[in-house]
Computed example of a mutant assay.
Amino acid sequence: MATPSIKVVIPARYGSSRLPAKPLLKINNKPIFWHVAQRVQEAGVCLTDIIIATDHSDIEHAAKALNLPVILTATEHVSGTDRVNEVAKKLSWPSDTLIINVQGDEPLIPPQLIKKLISFTRVNPEFAITTAATPIKAYQDFINTNVVKAVTNEANHALYFTRSPAPLNRDDPQDLTHAKRHIGIYVYKASALNTLCGLPESQLERLEKLEQLRALSNGLTIGVMNFNADIPHGIDTQQDYSHIKSIMEKL
């Protein structure tokens, strides 16, 4: 049986509420999404298998000027997942294609994370979706509702994702042995992605504001790869941009 092909889609949305036109902000004279595409290539993915998915012609033109494959998508998408699915449909990718959603605002995403997740996905074909998690080492992160926790079984099968402290050791609430922070990178089988985007928002998704709960609520399996390393923060605010820019300009 032929090995499913790997495609990477990098959503780059112009209309960020906290940082408008974010993808066009420059670091070392290149826009943020260019750096993300570089990290993906450093993970061993060919440029021809990478697509910038954007909602704005300015980003489309910037990508073309940098010789990056780009597709202009609809402006009304609620999430990056819907934008990725539009690309998959437009390009008629086969249902078994493995599509990686790499967020366009993470110019320091470790290439090793992407590489390991591809390997994990290939050796665990039973999962409809795969993602990653990293150990939580600080109790403040464990109780922080902005830090999403992944709860898994012994077979790396996601049981739940939550903003609450979980799994909680009843006898020792300070115990972080099994605490994992979810990392927002996903690999979808194209068929699973299309199914997911056709489903309505689930009750748990609405409560926790976590899109991955729509998949679990509807029986789509999610495999969680453990990645034992720090994940640099993405760019959400002007402060994030200034901080990451200063780091990357020193590299």
Results as ranks from 00 to 15, higher is better:
residue 9 V to Q: 06
residue 12 A to E: 02
residue 13 R to Y: 04
residue 15 G to D: 12
residue 19 L to F: 14
residue 19 L to K: 05
residue 20 P to V: 14
residue 21 A to Y: 08
residue 21 A to G: 08
residue 21 A to D: 12
residue 27 I to F: 07
residue 29 N to D: 15
residue 30 K to H: 14
residue 30 K to W: 09
residue 30 K to S: 14
residue 33 F to I: 10
residue 34 W to G: 02
residue 35 H to N: 10
residue 36 V to E: 04
residue 37 A to T: 05
residue 38 Q to M: 15
residue 39 R to F: 05
residue 40 V to L: 07
residue 40 V to C: 06
residue 41 Q to I: 10
residue 42 E to M: 14
residue 43 A to F: 10
residue 45 V to I: 15
residue 45 V to C: 08
residue 48 T to K: 10
residue 48 T to P: 00
residue 49 D to G: 11
residue 52 I to M: 07
residue 52 I to C: 04
residue 53 A to E: 02
residue 53 A to H: 00
residue 54 T to N: 09
residue 55 D to I: 11
residue 60 E to D: 06
residue 60 E to F: 03
residue 62 A to G: 02
residue 63 A to Q: 03
residue 63 A to I: 05
residue 63 A to Y: 00
residue 63 A to T: 04
residue 64 K to P: 02
residue 66 L to E: 02
residue 67 N to M: 11
residue 68 L to H: 02
residue 69 P to S: 09
residue 72 L to R: 07
residue 72 L to I: 07
residue 74 A to H: 04
residue 75 T to R: 07
residue 78 V to T: 06
residue 78 V to R: 07
residue 81 T to Y: 03
residue 83 R to P: 01
residue 86 E to D: 13
residue 89 K to S: 14
residue 95 S to I: 09
residue 99 I to G: 00
residue 104 G to R: 01
residue 107 P to D: 15
residue 107 P to M: 13
residue 108 L to W: 03
residue 111 P to R: 06
residue 112 Q to G: 06
residue 113 L to S: 04
residue 113 L to C: 07
residue 118 I to K: 01
residue 119 S to K: 08
residue 122 R to L: 15
residue 124 N to V: 10
residue 124 N to Q: 11
residue 126 E to D: 14
residue 127 F to M: 12
residue 128 A to E: 10
residue 130 T to P: 03
residue 130 T to L: 10
residue 134 T to V: 09
residue 134 T to F: 05
residue 136 I to T: 05
residue 137 K to S: 12
residue 138 A to L: 11
residue 140 Q to F: 06
residue 142 F to T: 00
residue 142 F to H: 01
residue 143 I to S: 02
residue 144 N to P: 00
residue 149 K to T: 07
residue 150 A to E: 00
residue 151 V to S: 01
residue 155 A to E: 09
residue 157 H to V: 06
residue 158 A to V: 05
residue 161 F to H: 01
residue 162 T to R: 01
residue 165 P to L: 11
residue 169 N to I: 07
residue 171 D to F: 13
residue 172 D to R: 06
residue 173 P to L: 13
residue 173 P to S: 13
residue 174 Q to F: 15
residue 175 D to G: 07
residue 178 H to N: 15
residue 180 K to P: 00
residue 180 K to W: 04
residue 183 I to Y: 05
residue 183 I to L: 15
residue 185 I to L: 12
residue 187 V to R: 00
residue 189 K to G: 08
residue 189 K to M: 11
residue 189 K to T: 13
residue 197 C to K: 02
residue 197 C to W: 01
residue 202 S to D: 10
residue 204 L to D: 05
residue 206 R to E: 14
residue 209 K to S: 13
residue 210 L to H: 00
residue 210 L to V: 07
residue 211 E to A: 14
residue 212 Q to C: 10
residue 213 L to I: 07
residue 217 S to V: 05
residue 220 L to T: 04
residue 222 I to M: 08
residue 227 F to N: 02
residue 230 D to P: 02
residue 235 I to Q: 01
residue 238 Q to S: 13
residue 238 Q to F: 04
residue 244 I to H: 04
residue 246 S to R: 11
residue 246 S to E: 11
residue 248 M to V: 11
residue 251 L to G: 09
